[in-house]
Design a protein around this nucleic acid. Sequence first.
DNA 1: AACATCTATCGTAATATTACGATGGATTAA
DNA 2: TTAATCCATCGTAATATTACGATAGATGTT
Lengths: 109, 109
Amino acid sequence: MGVTKTDIFTNQQNKLAMQLKAIAHPARIAILQQIIKANACICGDLVDELGLAQATISQHLKELKNAGLIQGSIEGVSICYCIEPVAWKNLQNEINNMFASYKDVNTCC
Amino acid sequence: MGVTKTDIFTNQQNKLAMQLKAIAHPARIAILQQIIKANACICGDLVDELGLAQATISQHLKELKNAGLIQGSIEGVSICYCIEPVAWKNLQNEINNMFASYKDVNTCC
DNA sequence: AACATCTATCGTAATATTACGATGGATTAA
DNA sequence: TTAATCCATCGTAATATTACGATAGATGTT
């Protein structure tokens, strides 16, 4: 027990859950917002912007990267992160579809 | 340690993270999809539809309810769940804003 | 009242997440 | 080369999540 039963769900459901989970943390939301806002991808600035330790920020960046939502490239001594456009738009579509499938006929409850 | 530092983030960031976390599980995605599909809110049918124990489904429903995304009403001996329209649309907007704020200028990384 | 049905909750075990200090590897500057 | 800077990773403690059996409460049926 204690582990999610991914085998009884579809690949689509598992992937969507995995990517949503990557976003579902205030620090990672703040990181994404900062990356989007600054466009010219930030790196260690995130440590100053948010009030978290460097190791913690690095860990959050790793999760966003593992989910495929951001990408990083070496920029001199520091590392530059930015949105991974394809995954970002795919996720946007998946979420849109999910929300759009709900028709507010409200004939229940 | 081990607890999310909500105090250093905005209410908006915390709320969005909280609601996204509620959705960020394949079982809860499947539950939401089923509720939307059936419209006429299901209840114990979810236990049959998904391959999870009744206690587990009930726990997932509770989390969706705590996040304000669904509502339940007593329907005879069983309980009928459906989408909470207001929260659902608010969340849809919040997510849309987040994704829409990204302009694919790709001048980095 | 007695019974059946449905669901919420309790208790619990296994695992995952969160945060941070400390350390090490890579790159640039002196 | 030496020192400085930046970041990833390791190790770890505290807490949260996930899943399920067992049980209890509520409603409907006989």
